[in-house]
């Protein structure tokens, strides 16, 4: 940043940006900014959860049967994977606090790896839905969908026709998990950027805001999944 024309005579710390009066002001500002960003994220997903709630109340049958076709085991695996990645990012922050550059890189790499596992599993799940022609608009097939739902129906329950609103269930499933995945992809980009910074030794025990705030972001993305999993798989 520019260091032109310092007009006041107070000393600037190396990490303090010129337009802040003190390091404390800078830290507090950034933290407030991050929380406001989270607030807008909540509202963003809030729109989706609203649509979810409205249609779930309107079409409980569709929701029950749609959730029945989900692979709960894979969903569970992904939940555990994401919780693991949250843990590893906590350890990255911990390393940063102790000025451990290698630790930051190691735990970030593990976070990314777990993220990739999540995507792998997600790809399998999306792929199965595509095969079963359960993607509304793109390859939806009533006949095939009915067949899949019958297969997954609990014993003793006979399904003779598609429940009303079943396509809405799958539409919301794809939009909600898709938006979540998009946030993870953005997280990947941020993580790589921070790893480069860390590798260049830009952080130390007094200064590691990027690591810390990335941790907050990643936790947020995980929490969204913690909501999505029961709402879409377990009902």
């Amino acid at each position: 940043m520019s260091h032109a024309a310092a007009t006041t005579d107070h000393e600037h710390k190396p990490y303090q940006q010129h337009h802040f009066e003190s390091m404390e002001q800078q830290t507090q500002s950034t933290l407030l900014g991050i929380w406001l960003f989270m607030a807008q994220e909540i509202l963003f997903f809030g729109g989706l959860f609203t649509a979810y709630t409205v249609y779930r109340i309107l079409y409980p049958q569709a929701w029950a049967m749609g959730a029945g076709t989900q692979n709960v085991f894979l969903g569970m695996v992904n939940t555990i994977v994401l919780i693991g990645s949250s843990l590893s990012i906590v350890l990255a922050v911990h390393s940063a606090r102790h000025n451990d550059k290698k630790g930051i890189l190691k735990w970030f790499a593990l976070t990314l790896l777990l993220g990739l596992v999540f995507f792998g599993v997600k790809a399998v799940e999306y792929g199965t839905k595509w095969e079963h022609q359960l993607v509304p608009g793109l390859n939806w097939d009533d006949h095939h969908a009915l067949h899949t739902i019958q297969e997954h129906a609990p014993k003793g329950v006979e399904v003779t026709e598609l429940p009303k609103g079943i396509q809405l269930y799958y539409s919301l499933y794809f939009v909600m998990t898709g938006m979540h995945a998009l946030h993870m992809i953005i997280g990947f980009g941020l993580a790589i950027w921070i790893m480069i910074k860390a590798a260049r030794g830009r952080f130390n025990a007094e200064y590691y805001p990027h690591v810390e705030y990335f941790g907050l972001y990643w936790h947020f993305v995980d929490i969204v999944w913690i909501f999505l999993f029961p709402l879409l798989y377990l009902v």
Binding site: P136, G165, S171
Partner: peptide, 9 residues
Amino acid sequence: FGIFDPQKG
């Protein structure tokens, strides 16, 4: 996707 499409509910 049809979230607001009456044909799909």
